[in-house]
Design a protein around this nucleic acid. Sequence first.
DNA 1: AAATCATATTCCTATCACGGAATATGCTTC
DNA 2: GAAGCATATTCCGTGATAGGAATATGATTT
Lengths: 126, 126
Amino acid sequence: MELVEIYECLCDPTRLRLLNVLAQGPVCVCHFQDVLGEPQVKISKHLAYLRARGLVASERQGNWVIYGLAAKRSRELEANLACLQECAQSIPVFKRDLARLKKIEPSCAWVRAGDPRKAPGQCRCG
Amino acid sequence: MELVEIYECLCDPTRLRLLNVLAQGPVCVCHFQDVLGEPQVKISKHLAYLRARGLVASERQGNWVIYGLAAKRSRELEANLACLQECAQSIPVFKRDLARLKKIEPSCAWVRAGDPRKAPGQCRCG
DNA sequence: AAATCATATTCCTATCACGGAATATGCTTC
DNA sequence: GAAGCATATTCCGTGATAGGAATATGATTT
């Protein structure tokens, strides 16, 4: 993974928001939609972009797909993610996203717990 | 200066090399050509790109133009430049550039000293 | 097996970024 | 002021990218 590719991943606002959220832990796609307030296609495409380049990994659980930061990250990626997080701390959009994530997440903890059978009928968490 | 704009500046290999070199101090354009081994247009355009976005500033001295990192840099920019430098340390291209810079630079110290009158006929330093 | 839900992909369009060739500018020297 | 040098800009062609609408896939429920 070239350094430039990392920056290419970082040069879109939506992807920055996704990565900022992902730094908190794995999240399923519908969460992203709610947190970012962006249409499904947009979210899905940018996640695909990041996955194609190995920044994130996805895992299916029933109807839902959970995305997380890739398990193995190069030193460069690690450094840049840390840098992003530091920068994001003081930028409104990112703070808002994390705040919304906090509200939504507890109600859907079962998703990440990996037991889709215990799921309520839907993931429209909130 | 939006965070994304910073990343846009960083998502081209030539610009990364330029910034890596600039981290050592101001440099004139012909140095860049020699150090990077890239054609004049390419160097000039990317420097223009960086200048348009406020990452670097330029100053004319006689026939030559000296570029340096912008005096005032946002926290975000500062963080990312530091991150870049750290990453660059272990990447061959960047190391090579700095090595070549070291060789070339002394012979042209007068340029940055700001006395074009004392210049030898040309800046083809080396 | 039909309907429903969550997510992914395709198709299209508009925009933008890079690179190179050629040309322009601005300064200096003769 | 003409020639020469260092740098900048313009004008192309080409390829990448983002976004939206529509459609497809894959899993689940009835």
